[in-house]
Design a protein around this nucleic acid. Sequence first.
DNA 1: GTAATATAACTAATAAGATTAGCTTTGTCA
DNA 2: TGACAAAGCTAATCTTATTAGTTATATTAC
Lengths: 187, 187
Amino acid sequence: MPRKTGLNRETIVEAAVELVNREGVGALTLHRLAAHVGVRPPSLYNHIHGMPGLLRELALFNARQLAEQMGRAVIGQSGAPALEKLANVYRAYIKANPGLYWISLSAPQPEDDIELIEAQQDIIQIALLVIESLGYQGEQALHIVRGLQSLVHGFTTLENLGGFGLELDCEVSFQYIVSTFIRGISH
Amino acid sequence: MPRKTGLNRETIVEAAVELVNREGVGALTLHRLAAHVGVRPPSLYNHIHGMPGLLRELALFNARQLAEQMGRAVIGQSGAPALEKLANVYRAYIKANPGLYWISLSAPQPEDDIELIEAQQDIIQIALLVIESLGYQGEQALHIVRGLQSLVHGFTTLENLGGFGLELDCEVSFQYIVSTFIRGISH
DNA sequence: GTAATATAACTAATAAGATTAGCTTTGTCA
DNA sequence: TGACAAAGCTAATCTTATTAGTTATATTAC
């Protein structure tokens, strides 16, 4: 069919992930991305719907990868240790994928994007199951999910941005904060 | 001096704040900003150092305004109520300035930008004083500051991005989460 | 009061990026 | 073997940021 076979959406998305994690959000241009996969910029449009489409693909990739890693982390675990494990996996994921995670936050979020919403709900669902294994249910369980997600997301993005001074070990802070929150809900 | 007098850095920054809060981060271009203040784009360079300089000014404005509002909120208050008040003011600020807050996170953070670092430390300092009024000191107090900032920053940015489903009232979640965290540290 | 100066506006031009239109090549299949 | 569709390409357009060089005018010095 084409002059060179082998290019597809998956390859493009993976190259974009690599680029944005290695060189930062500002480095993600279609020009550079095209060079990375060996084509000219307009050729990318045969596989993705321009820059907005690429951002959407990245957000989807991000949500699915995060859900997958979280799900795998708590297999066969329950209770407070499982919750701490989830928090640590979430943070490790963001630290390993700083550019991807950040750009996913800025991506468009159309309400009819079923795939993306499903992947995001998977993330919540995994946390919810763990929290229910601790004995919480209904709205309270949902509040706790939101709290833990806010805590980990907030801490790690501030940490990545250098928003904390350098004095105090972030690792220690994180463990302290997570256990403080979990202690708060156990009351 | 010029053909029209009256334009200065402060006016430009205020117009940028207005623009970015009203129309979102993507709407902040020098072209549109220049139109808002009634000049051509190159004229802005007489007052700000291009787009990077503008982002830095916005980050500084953001940090100072947030510090000022936080400081004012806890005058004459102490203890757990003061801490909850701080959390609520921080969240209210982000909700009132979504574009400004978000773009400030993306702004460059040179380590020698004393003014910006000072303003950011003011924010931490205010929270620290309140936490010390609760009887915590040293590293533990710093962990608590990081935790509370992460919680509020994380919750509100996720809330603004629509990251939570619509089912459950965010106001209720927020109060629950903040009091849960505070309960955790009181133990 | 007038001339010199510095400031801040301007126009014009350049470069990078996203995107579209339209052309070309080539694998697949009838 | 020839038609077709997919996927690459070049060329062109539009937006944005930025720089260079010019012009107009408020202030200041005389």
